[in-house]
Design a protein around this nucleic acid. Structure first.
Length: 589
DNA sequence: GTCCTCACTTAGGAAGATCGAG
DNA sequence: CTCGATCTTCCTAAGTGAGGAC
């Protein structure tokens, strides 16, 4: 309960929002205490530690595994790993060569010597009984009675209450991911060389706990020990462990609604707003640098132009063979672009075609300025398709340069800035004094413009065509209904003209209202259809959650009298609580 | 510079919960 | 009340970028 006022108090320091000042005087002093200048993230941190994955439950003896058509009883370790595969049997992954090979190699490591000598070919393994068994279990769970479901829900709730919260500097905060990732088969995205590898079970002995010395330390499960308990208040995580696929560290951290995340988020948008103030100058500078005598500066300037204009990601180098082959701006290769001196009546066109983060394809053809084009031709000279386009540049060089142009400026700030400024400008352009659904369509379209800019795609929903058809038939039905209502209105009017009594007059009014209501409903459906069609392959969520300054949205809602609930759901409102409290209708990004 | 480690943000899909039409 | 569609939450992979060792 006291989280919010303290949070607010912090924001009050930079926004002259006086309404809340009176009742948070006490908390302001608390907040002041908590503003660390030495890089500390907290003074006090107490939590209950992570929730571990439930132990493996062996299959009932009637669920059999067959090798080469013959029943084979597997050792518990081998069986557990087999179930991971069985659970994915319907997934495309299990048809992929790389996935199957990686899985089989890791599975064999879990087998007893006898199993290993017998099971030599994955194609001879029959997991269907296991698969059917798990499907039946899922089905059974769905068919449970209301009471049983309620019981499970309550048990889950109890776990959340016990492990889902921590105390950080007097605030009780929600933890984002307090459950340790269960073992399973690694599902990389795109053409990942490690897909199918066994992600091993994490034990308390693998886990590092971070909390304050003076807190009640979390207890490891009976008979176990933590790898380490440390008290590092320069970081925000509560628990960490090293994952075995890439050797990277995983963390348990706080929910986006927490003070520590909210403040960071706010800071991010403030940095982007500072960029707004100097972006013109930076643009002038990189345009000038296109003419530089030095190759490295020209490359830097062209790359920055792409990052700015196309909202490309920075593009760190990646270790070859360890991950899917994806790139960002600085890691673009010759094979990822094509130059057309002329294309479809436009001059100096660049075609981009590459796989970005999560192996999402970026495809775009854009006309660029002649100077950029000439530079690109120069960068391509004497290179092979697999050579780097920007061979004198990497993200570190670029970011060092950006840091000199503005304090806190990095490549990703451009994405945030361009996303937010686009939303603001599109909202201005598209919104008009209209009914609420039309305003919301405008909002979604502005949001969509950003999602397109940032290349946030999604797989078209499997049911997309059908759901479009359903909506269309609803629209047709509504149109018929409207025609009927109009006919009735007409006859009622005619009737009233003849009879001229109160009763028929009233009837006309009623029919008029009915027509209006149906017109409204029809319009709403049509808007919905437009929105859905335009959204087929576009994901709005990512930009909404990570790129758009929420204060723009809050201000828009206030200005146009749209309730915030129409734009942000409960989780989003919690995450953006700071903005909802802070922004008024005149906020400008 | 280059490599490596670490912490943190950003990302799309899967699973689960809720809604609304019939 | 049931079922499929849709919305929300969960999950965890995949990025960014700072900083330190050499």
């Amino acid at each position: 309960m006291y989280t919010k006022p303290i949070l607010l108090a912090g924001y009050l320091q930079t926004t002259a929002l006086t309404v809340f000042v009176l009742n948070v005087t006490l908390e302001i002093s608390l907040w002041e205490e908590e503003r660390y200048t030495d890089g500390s993230k907290w003074k006090f941190l107490e939590h209950k530690g992570p929730v571990f994955a439930p132990p493996y439950e062996p299959l009932p003896s009637n669920v059999k595994f067959y090798y080469d058509g013959k029943h084979m009883k597997l050792s518990p370790q081998a069986e557990e790993v087999a179930t991971f595969f069985a659970k994915m049997l319907d997934h495309e992954y299990t048809t992929k060569e790389v996935f199957r090979n990686n899985f089989f190699k890791d599975w064999k490591k879990e087998m007893t010597p006898e199993e290993k000598s017998k099971i030599t070919n994955l194609s001879k393994c029959d997991f269907t009984e296991m698969s059917e068994y798990f499907k039946a279990q899922t089905e059974a769970r769905k068919q449970m009675s209301k009471e049983e479901k309620q019981k499970i829900k309550e048990e889950n709730e109890r776990i959340v209450q016990e492990y889902g919260f921590c105390v950080m500097d007097n605030h009780k905060e929600r933890i984002a991911n307090f459950r340790i990732e269960p073992p399973g088969l690694f599902r990389g995205r795109g053409d990942h060389p490690k897909m199918g590898m066994l992600k091993r079970r994490i034990r308390p002995e693998d886990v590092i706990i971070n909390c304050s010395k003076d807190s009640k330390h979390p207890k490891p499960p009976p008979g176990t020990k933590w790898k380490e308990v440390r008290h590092d208040n320069k970081v925000t995580w509560l628990v960490s462990w090293t994952e075995n696929i890439q050797g990277s560290i995983k963390y348990i951290m706080l929910n986006p609604s927490s003070r520590i995340k909210g403040e960071k988020d706010w800071q991010k948008y403030e940095t982007a707003r500072r960029l707004k103030k100097c972006v013109d100058q930076i643009r002038a500078q990189y345009r000038d640098d296109w003419k530089s005598k030095e190759m490295r500066i020209r490359q830097r300037a062209v790359a920055l132009y792409f990052i700015d204009k196309l909202a490309l990601r920075a593009g760190n180098e990646k270790e070859e063979g360890e991950t899917a082959d994806t790139v960002g701006c600085c890691s673009l290769r010759v094979e990822h672009i094509k130059l057309y001196p002329e294309l479809n009546g436009q001059e100096f066109v660049v075609e981009f075609d590459f796989l970005g983060k999560d192996s999402i394809r970026y495809y775009n053809t854009i006309p660029v300025e002649k100077r950029v084009f000439k530079n690109l031709q120069l960068f391509l000279e004497n290179k092979q398709p697999e050579d780097d386009l920007f061979d004198r540049l990497n993200t570190s060089i670029l970011n060092k340069h950006l840091q000199e142009l503005m304090d806190g400026l990095t490549a990703k700030v451009f994405r945030t800035y361009n996303a937010s400024i686009t939303l603001q400008q599109q909202l201005k352009e598209l919104t008009s004094e209209d009914n609420t659904p039309a305003k919301i369509l405008s909002y979604n379209r502005a949001n969509r413009a950003v999602a397109i800019l940032c290349n946030h795609q999604r797989a078209p929903p499997k049911t997309f065509e059908k759901s479009m058809q359903n909506l269309q038939s609803k629209i047709d039905a509504k149109k018929d209904q409207l025609a009927d209502a109009r006919r009735e209105l007409k006859s009622a009017k005619a009737d009233a003209k003849v009879r001229k009594d109160e009763k028929t007059k009233k009837a006309v009014e009623t029919k008029k209202k009915a027509v209006q209501r149906i017109e409204e409903q029809l319009m709403k459906l049509e808007v919905q259809a437009t929105d859905r069609e335009e959204n087929k392959q576009i994901a709005l969520g990512t930009s909404k959650l990570n790129y758009l300054d929420p204060r723009i949205t809050v201000a828009w809602c206030k200005k146009w009298n749209v309730t915030i609930e129409k734009i942000y759901n409960k989780t989003q409102r919690e995450k953006f609580a700071w903005a909802i409290d802070m922004a008024d209708k005149d906020f400008e990004f």
